[in-house]
Design a protein around this nucleic acid. Structure first.
Lengths: 243, 243
DNA sequence: GAGTGGTCTAGACCACTGA
DNA sequence: CAGTGGTCTAGACCACTCA
């Protein structure tokens, strides 16, 4: 046993860096403050820029930093709690005008959830969810034409007022229940743009299935910015897990 | 206007790669199949290995791939749905023996949630949640000594049977309600080890606050593997969003 | 135009797995 | 042991923001 067994688990540099910088954020920086640029930071810590970036990426993933091309890296405010509680017998978007209709087809995964064939007509309405002035989520609601038969005669398939018609038709149905799942995803190009992020940014995907009369009457897919959002269920908007 | 405005948005190579490989996974590979190694793949696509890795990282984040050092990259099975539904008036771990007591202090963020001072005694019990043979989550339950006064006299602070005592004491309290939040995090070293992942792996952190008699009687912090898990709420374990 | 973060390269070495 | 993914380097160029 002449060899030393200590240090047998050499911590990766980027991991150590993340810890050091994370602690510095708590003590030496205020929310919104700009950090030194990546080249300076890398030089200061004596690592390559790529290594430094790996540490910053982690911190950004955890919502501790915010990086913007052409601007710099700033200390992020605590994540905002976004209420996604169930309200177990309400259709979405009742009376709100933040929704607008879009003219696109439902992806295969959604048609599967809706339990319909890919060629059935599906209304698609979209909204951008905004909290405290910041866009936090892009939500798409898929409603098979079968679910809202009263709408079949009307025109203007892609119009902006159309969304309200679809939603108000939904209200006429009896909502038997809903179920929901949350998983990690990466932002598609269009969602990323609306959320002011780069494509591939980490997002929390909330998929909700609305059940009526024994079948799936609608499906909602909401894409939340994972870096800035904390999804809350129940009556606790003040639940905070900072640091 | 002599310059061509086409291709004004050059898609990053890694993004394009991700799309191409992702499609190939659907058509040319079966679940569990091993992909060519990274050096071969990079050469085949004519990119540097780092760029190829960036694409694979994205796919792994989305739960489409699984990479293991020393082994290779395999096609991941669809994410497993893990039920985290509220069961709005039940304490955790009733009668189960999967929990064991650990001898550690509550982090500052938890003491804040519990609304106690950092020096108050807190019982900590832990469990590893397993679904379909795979570890999917590490859960820590923090119970202030004040919440379970009947336990004060007993000994063996770090023992394994202690956990059951703490949990059964909890059952005696009236549970008024609970609230919950979900956010993205990165696995701490100890959690990562139990979840069979590297430190920093993306996880979904589910924080639950148990309310009794107007105060927070306990707090649970559950860390789910984000790559393999889909958190489900409600009665739909079969809700699937593959591909 | 200067300065920022984002992408990409071509290489090196390390830690781990399994035959 | 050979082969895998994980870490790290030192550079280059690009896209973007803002004064």
């Amino acid at each position: 046993m002449g060899t030393t067994q200590l240090e047998s688990v050499p911590e990766p540099k980027y991991w150590h860096l993340k810890t050091v910088i994370g602690e510095a954020l708590d003590t030496d920086f205020a929310v919104g403050e700009i950090l030194p640029n990546e080249r300076d930071l890398a030089a200061r810590f004596g690592v390559a820029r790529a290594t430094l970036r790996q540490a910053l990426e982690q911190l950004e993933l955890e919502g501790r930093l915010q990086r913007r091309r052409g601007v710099g890296t700033t200390v992020a405010p605590p994540r905002v709690g976004v209420d996604v509680s169930t309200t177990q017998h309400a259709w979405p978007g009742a009376g709100e005008d933040t929704w607008h209709s879009v003219d696109s087809a439902a992806p295969a995964a959604v048609t599967r959830l809706l339990d319909i064939t890919p060629d059935e007509r599906v209304h698609v309405v979209r909204r951008l969810r905004v909290t405290e002035g910041q866009p936090v989520a892009a939500e798409l609601l898929y409603v098979p034409a079968d679910s809202v038969p009263g709408l079949a005669a009307s025109g203007a398939p892609g119009g902006p007022a159309r969304a309200r018609d679809v939603l108000s038709e939904l209200q006429l149905l009896a909502l038997d229940g809903q179920d929901r799942s949350v998983e990690l995803g990466s932002a598609r190009a269009d969602d990323a743009k609306e959320l002011d992020r780069l494509p591939g940014a980490p997002v929390l995907v909330v998929t909700t299935r609305y059940l009526s009369e024994g079948r799936t009457a609608a499906v909602s897919v909401a894409t939340y910015r994972a870096d800035t959002c904390r999804l809350t269920f129940g009556d606790s908007g003040d639940l905070v897990m900072a640091s």
